[in-house]
Design a protein around this nucleic acid. Structure first.
Lengths: 124, 124
DNA sequence: CCGCATCCACTATGATACTG
DNA sequence: CAGTATCATAGTGGATGCGG
């Protein structure tokens, strides 16, 4: 049970690892980081259109959270029409390889996962 | 915009990577996989007590999902009192390194993230 | 001991319309 | 263009009690 100590609350608070992972676990954070990591700098509507099925609201909210966590930079140009650009911070870029690892694993294993799900459902 | 094609719906369906990541993105899946990866085989109540603040229901539900996805094995002993053991499948173990990478990143960066959050909140 | 079923609250997400 | 505001909804997660 050595490992548990690392991942559990150490003394009444909550596990820090879980706090961070919870944040990344929302529906869009990982995707946005991955996309920004590849595209570099993007405008709001580029992201919006690029992701496709994200609502404007969730894009706004998620970007704000990522900005608050210091993972994304928001750069506003005082122009008409408005122009806002988003890009990853140093910290955001350091996270990228890990997310890509996950993404690659997902790509490699989804077939098997889908198969398992069907078999499981059928077996019930 | 080359990358986007990979992560977006290719033709009306949904992106497979996102489907899998959504699944892992729930509140407990990653944690359970990490713990099982370190402890090997565990009984239900070992997990329950080990994680601490997960409800019995969510543990049951999450384990079922992980089992359906072929990431976790559930082994029932027909005894009184009942005994059920959980362990990772081959596929589950292949996912482990990626999650650990994330966990390590989280541990290394949480201080900075907390600091950013405070600064951000104060700035507003 | 394991874990399912039920009821309930909350939050995340989404659709839509409006503003600078 | 880049949001904000409002309303509506579904899914998540928790408490509790029962059953094998």
């Amino acid at each position: 049970m050595e490992t548990l100590k690392k991942y559990r609350a150490a003394g009444g608070g909550n596990c820090a690892v879980r706090n961070v992972l919870d944040r990344l676990g929302d529906k869009w954070s990982m995707l946005i980081i991955i996309i920004l990591g590849h595209e570099g700098t993007m405008r709001f509507n580029q992201l919006h259109h690029g992701i496709g099925d994200i609502s404007q609201k969730m894009l706004t909210v998620t970007l704000k959270i990522l900005e608050a966590d210091g993972l994304v930079v928001r750069k506003v140009y005082a122009e008409i029409p408005p122009k806002v650009e988003y890009s990853l911070t140093e910290r955001g870029r350091s996270l990228l390889p890990h997310l890509e690892g996950l993404a690659q694993w997902a790509e490699a294993n989804m077939q098997g996962i889908y198969a398992s799900r069907e078999k499981y459902t059928a077996g019930v």
